[in-house]
Each structure stands twice: as structure tokens, then as C-alpha cells.
Design a protein around this nucleic acid. Sequence first.
DNA 1: GATTCATATTCCCTCTAAGGAATATGAATC
DNA 2: GATTCATATTCCTTAGAGGGAATATGAATC
Lengths: 117, 117
Amino acid sequence: MELVRIYECLCEPTRLRLLHVLAAGPLCVCHFQAVMREPQVKISKHLGYLRTRGLVECEREGNWMIYRLPAKPSRELRSNLACLQDCVRENPVFRRDRARLAKLAPRLAQTGPACCP
Amino acid sequence: MELVRIYECLCEPTRLRLLHVLAAGPLCVCHFQAVMREPQVKISKHLGYLRTRGLVECEREGNWMIYRLPAKPSRELRSNLACLQDCVRENPVFRRDRARLAKLAPRLAQTGPACCP
DNA sequence: GATTCATATTCCCTCTAAGGAATATGAATC
DNA sequence: GATTCATATTCCTTAGAGGGAATATGAATC
């Protein structure tokens, strides 16, 4: 069942953080590293896991890989992502990620979701 | 995070079926067996898994163990159970479980959630 | 074409889950 | 107190997840 594949993705904290950050817009891997302060392997592997199960999509842009939530999510995925956002709204870890992301906002506005210093 | 524990429970099809059936009301293990047509070990183990993570509660009644959804679910649990019920509404496997449960309804009305032939 | 940079993959290890067969538990009944 | 019934637990095996170190890939730049 597709639903089980979705829940498999959701039962790991790093992946929840990735999805929560992505809800704010597309992002490249190095920005995830900056926002979440986690090692590159970890982030890349979990994004790969999400990708093979259709919870994120990605596209190369020069050196960077830009990840985004699916353009046309299934009903199940849409419901569950909404539920997730609602559940973590007040969680400190997730708020911190969003705060760090907000600090990158000006740079993102200039350069798009890719590119690091 | 508690949320992750919830998703861990939701990423296995048998457990999703158990929770879906429970949403209709408390039930004993042998009735789960009848409704879901799965071996006793399997059902008992998954109920145990759900119990240790707080997704179900149980109480002994004579020979029978009556399982039910928590009386006071957390906000996260409530949201996710609602989301689940919504997602599986049209799924054949889940509908079949409910149909078999409906056939037991008259007997349940007489005897309560426990008791087998 | 060699180097650099961002990202992905491989390899190794540890841990947990899942299923089934067999057995244990605990309440009820004779 | 022995048996029966519903349920739980143990033991075994297999499979997959998760983390990190090291290495590979692929695009861009010099």
C-alpha cells in the first residue's frame, strides 16, 4: 500500500525535519546542511530515501541538486504532509530549523534555492 | 519525539488495519482474528507493539483482552488517526475488514466486545 | 585535462522489525 | 487440581534501516 510507504518515510526524525523545511520551498543539499546542522551523508541519504518513495522530487542545477515537494502529490501524501506540519508547529527543533532557514532567506531571494558562499 | 513513535506504528499494514477496526469500537483478540483473518501471534504481537507505544489501551475481561483506542489521545495521535481513517476510507482491504466487523455487530451488541462462539 | 566543488554511493557495523513454531501465562470450569 | 480456552511470550531466522568513513560521480573552472 502506498500509505505504508509514506509512513515509512515519516518514522525518522531527520526525514521529518527535511520535509518540514521543504514545505517552505525548494532547497539544495548544502542549504539543508546549514539549516539542520547535520552531516552531508546523513542528509543526502535521507533525501535519497524520500526520493525513491516519491515524497520529494529533485533536479540538478549546475553543481547543485534542488529538492522540492512533489508538484502533484497524491491525496494521501497531501493529507499527511498537512498533518505533519500541523503536529510539529510548536516543536523547538522544527522551529529552529525554520529560523535558520529564515536567515538564509535574503540570499535565497537573490540566487534561488541553490548556491553556497 | 512522540510523533516518530506514532509513525513507527503506522508503517506496517497489519497495524493500520488494527487501528482502523478499533476506530469502530473496542474489540477482543479473537474477534480481530475473525475480522482480519490473520494468525493469532501476528495480531497479538502487533497489538502489543501498539500498546507499548500508547496507540491502544487494553483491559482483561475474563479470558479475553479488550483493546481500545486511548481514552485521552494526544493531539498528534488524534490528528494522525483522523488522517488515517480518511486515507483508507476507499481501500478494499480496510472496507472488507469493516464489512466482516459489521457481520459481528449483532453478536457484539449482545455480549460486548469479548466472547467467541 | 586536472582540479574543485556539491552531492551520491559503497562498505562496514549495529540494531530493530517481522513472521512462524512452540511454549508459557492466567482465568474459568469441571 | 487438572483441563480448557484466549492471549502473550520466547526463540529462531531473515531483512532492512541507520550512521559514519571513505570513495565515486558529474558539472564547472582553470
